[in-house]
Amino acid sequence: MKIILNIWRQKNSSSPGKMVRYELDKVNEHMSFLEMLDVLNEDLARKGEDPVAFEHDCREGICGCCGFMVNGIAHGPERSTTVCQLHMRHFRDGDELWLEPFRAKAFPVIKDLVVDRSAFDRVIAAGGYISINTGSAPEANSIPVERQRADRAMDAAACIGCGACVAACPNASASLFVSAKIAHLGLLPQGEPERDRRAVRMVLKMTEEGFGYCTNTGECEAICPKGVKIENIARMHRDFTRAVALYREASKAAGAH
């Protein structure tokens, strides 16, 4: 099948970018979207032109490397699918597609479709963990966890950190990403001791990194390739408010005013 691609080309973070049109004649319906880009890049490289930079690694939908906008939708039109798992059979012969990088103040463009998502790491470093040094853990079965709770924690923990939620949000908020971690750890008894500190530190860090606020538009949940639920955001707000209101001393220590 034939596919027309308009791809955002930008040499580096300091140069302006523009859309460039490419026509592909021999796209196989069983190809993944990224395999189609591989074919384009091979052609470009053979001609001595600069291939399109895009991030990818596992190509199994789990590493979270890949992700860009296809016709304005993060990871493209298929629900619960990363762009590496999106196959060309979902498109029609002659389709024209527009590929752009994820756009957000906190995700500056590095080159073409590659953006800098290191803000996510810094938000995790601010408190997205349970403080337990290697060797000091108690016997695993001494901490029983209700099965439903463990399942809900796992639902939230399934986040792959791709950043599609930020790209889809009109406010470029990272609330779904941040709340998924707060919920994952906060639902478990192991995460309870640091629940307040974690919520305060992560939420403040998110704002500091330039992500917007949540206004409940729900685009993030609709776009999330792993089905992470917006209910986590409600939990994040509750934990944050509770921590700030009830534990003023602790939240001050964590950096809140």
């Binding site: 000091s136 853990a137 108690p138 695993a140 901490i143 029983p144 966890v145 750890l185 192991q190």
Partner: peptide, 19 residues
């Protein structure tokens, strides 16, 4: 296993709460 559980790795559980 002890270390990972303490870190909050959400391993599958039985109804009784054990791993």
């Amino acid at each position: 296993i002890d270390q990972c559980v303490a870190q909050g790795v959400p391993f599958a559980r039985e109804y009784g709460g054990t791993l």
